[in-house]
Design a protein around this nucleic acid. Structure first.
Length: 270
DNA sequence: ATAATAACCTGAGGGC
DNA sequence: TGCCCTCAGGTTATTA
């Protein structure tokens, strides 16, 4: 479910409520997430939350003695609950604070993850191989051009590869390629520098606009306050098979690339 | 090394 | 109403 804008929206929602709070304990009702949650090995009691960061689609709760690494998977949500709020279906984990309120993790499909590291989280095996943030200065057209040389796979899976650039998922990949006028099926290595410059800009633009709108809610994404994101209204192609292309009026088509639905306009993208 | 596929889960929606 | 099928915003493991 969550791509970079949804994770960033979540971070902004929870951070003001977490920073400076002291953790009392971790309550785990269902430890079977992407990896079994080793609850007893996470020494959270008495620690303070110092800052809440985002790296790629991961949230990093920097605490006094280490970092809680969180991934929302496809269906994960975080929200804050008052003391005594009874858990509902798929409320798997609570991070309980000393006043009894809690950060609650809900994840129907359980593809999400919670991990603890006492070390620099950026050196954690899950994070160390990640590509640059889309807004980093180094992530420009020249970078994408260089990384794509010799790659025969389609450009859409290429920009969704978290080792190339992080944060771009299935929705925003289609949207960015539409904005850049690039056919998502084209081999990544066959695209020139000028078009990668357009693509790099399009990725930044669409992610920035989506963050400003609070993310995209297709099915069930909500922010920490339970509100949906409104960028769905601004999607040009994703989920719009058969509708008119907003630029030329021809029907938007859907293809399957690397197992993922891919939406584009045959006339405007080539 | 690269790229496609299966797998991990639950729930919603469509067709019959 | 129920059953079976497909699909879903992600990532990892396995297979060519």
């Amino acid at each position: 479910m969550p791509e970079l804008p949804e994770v960033e929206t979540t971070r902004r929602g929870i951070a003001p409520h977490l920073v400076g709070r002291t953790i009392e304990r971790l309550v785990c009702r269902v430890p079977q997430l992407r990896w079994p949650l080793p609850e007893e090995t996470i020494p959270l009691a008495g620690q303070q939350v110092l800052v809440v960061e985002r790296r790629a689609k991961y949230l990093l709760l920097r605490c006094s003695n280490g970092t809680l690494i969180l991934h929302l998977g496809m269906s994960g949500h975080l929200h804050l609950v008052a003391a005594g709020t009874p858990p509902q279906a798929h409320d798997h984990v609570d991070l309980v604070f000393t006043d009894g309120s809690a950060l609650r993790f809900n994840d129907a499909r359980r593809f999400g993850a919670l991990l603890w590291t006492p070390d620099d989280p950026h050196r954690h095996p899950l994070l160390v191989e990640l590509g640059p943030e889309p807004f980093a200065a180094e992530m420009d057209g020249a970078y994408l051009y260089r990384r794509s040389r010799g790659r025969k796979g389609a450009v859409k899976p290429f920009i969704m590869d978290q080792q190339v650039v992080v944060g771009v998922g299935n929705i925003y990949a289609s949207e960015a390629l539409f904005r850049a006028g690039i056919d998502p099926c084209r081999p990544a290595g066959s695209i020139g520098l000028a078009r990668y410059e357009r693509l790099a800009a399009a990725i930044c633009d669409v992610l920035t606009e989506a963050i400003a709108a609070g993310g995209t809610t297709i099915r069930d994404f909500t922010d920490a306050g339970g509100r949906p994101g409104y960028f769905r209204l601004q999607l040009k192609v994703y989920g719009r098979e058969g509708e008119d292309c907003p630029a030329c009026g021809r029907p938007i088509v859907c293809a399957r690339l690397a197992g993922r639905s891919t939406y584009f306009c045959r006339k405007c993208q080539n």
